[in-house]
Amino acid sequence: MHEMSLTESVVRILEGEAARHGFSRVKLVRLEIGELSHVDPESILFCFGAVAGRSPLTSGAEMKIVRAPGQAHCLDCGDTVPLADRLAPCPRCGGARLVITGGEEMRVKEMEVE
């Protein structure tokens, strides 16, 4: 399950930030996960629950996930369109040739620390 690797990457980022900013505990971490990204937010939350307790830095930390909307460029009508499903047709012209331009983000946005 690659969500576990990704969650460990999140913790690695938090450790790096702790060294940089000099804090000892993360109370809240907020991620941005695009609607079209290849991770399941529920799995990330589950994995974070399993991983967070391993370190005093993240023990007891809460994770919140913000979804970034999907967006694509349609090769048929040339428009930039919202897209909630990777396999959906263009909502403007019904075309199937879409190049995804947004919604694949996987970022650590911000955190509350002490």
Binding site: S9, K27, M106, R107, V108, E112
Partner: peptide, 22 residues
């Protein structure tokens, strides 16, 4: 919904891609 207890805790903007290390 965020608690923000001034003085003991603070918000830090990170904006780092989760896959940045890879």
């Amino acid at each position: 919904d965020d608690h923000h207890d001034h003085g003991s805790s603070r918000m830090i903007q990170v904006e780092r891609d989760i896959l940045a290390h890879n």
